[in-house]
Design a protein around this nucleic acid. Structure first.
Lengths: 134, 134
DNA sequence: TCCTAATTCGTAATCATTCTGATTAAACTA
DNA sequence: TAGTTTAATCAGAATGATTACGAATTAGGA
């Protein structure tokens, strides 16, 4: 499964560095939104001196090419591995951060309602407590 | 119309200070999301030395009691006057920040799809260019 | 193996936001 | 209207996330 991401990196002429691959591994291994701090603490097991510059730069780069997706929670950016299958949104647990997919998205209804505006993107996020945290 | 907000302040035992009232006036006069910086520059006409502490504190306080609503854009919080009429969401122009209401919200469908999670809140935001900015 | 541009490092800088302790003023009471 | 109380404000320092910078390292190709 990591090979799919290696392909994506190559397609964008990005080098396969150990930091990048481990970063992808960490995010791919846990289907939840994580802050830069959480990510650095997980990476610290493998790279104790990794720079925040490296973390942030790669989070941006990989978000740009669609490997990660981001959202702003508690005034800090959080990142998770992107879902490539099809368009959908997420429920996010406010306690533990785990996500659950929601398929339904009425974007055409909204476009109809809006009329002549040019819709570029949209965000749908559902917040609450997952079954474990409730 | 400002009287409605004065009532809300009184209901929550908040004092009617000149800074607060002008802040509400500024946000109520422009139906768009504004950053703290934009807000301070508008307030500076009336209170050249107003402190950011005052601005942020009141933005929070008034958001808490439902006078303002907030969203995170470009890693900074933005605020607008709240719409009190009924539940709905917004389209936000990525260039000028103006908003447009969208009525449709399938929150029950999402709750059905999610099953046993406890849904506390949700965010729906549509981004793009308004007719003027397109 | 060597070259070169991309990547990373360590740290300083920036920027939004929050905190602190002192001062001011809204609102209530007499 | 003056006095009292307590919330609100101020100025500026502190915090915390994120970005920038110049030097050092390294992936990937020749």
């Amino acid at each position: 499964m990591i090979n799919q991401y290696k392909e994506q990196l190559k397609e964008h002429n990005l080098k396969l560095t150990d930091k990048r691959l481990k970063l992808i591994e960490v995010l791919a291994g846990d289907e939840k939104y994580m802050s830069a701090k959480e990510i650095q603490s997980k990476l610290a097991d493998y790279f104790p001196t990794i720079s925040y510059d490296t973390i942030y730069r790669n989070l941006h780069t990989l978000t740009d090419i669609g490997v990660f997706e981001q959202t702003s929670l508690d005034q800090e950016m959080h990142y998770k591995i992107a879902c490539v299958t099809h368009h959908h949104h997420h429920f996010i647990c406010e306690r533990c951060g785990v996500t659950q997919v929601v398929e339904y998205c009425p974007v055409e209804k909204w476009q109809n309602e809006l009329g002549d505006v040019k819709l570029n993107s949209h965000k749908v996020e559902l917040y609450g407590y997952c079954e474990k945290c409730a």
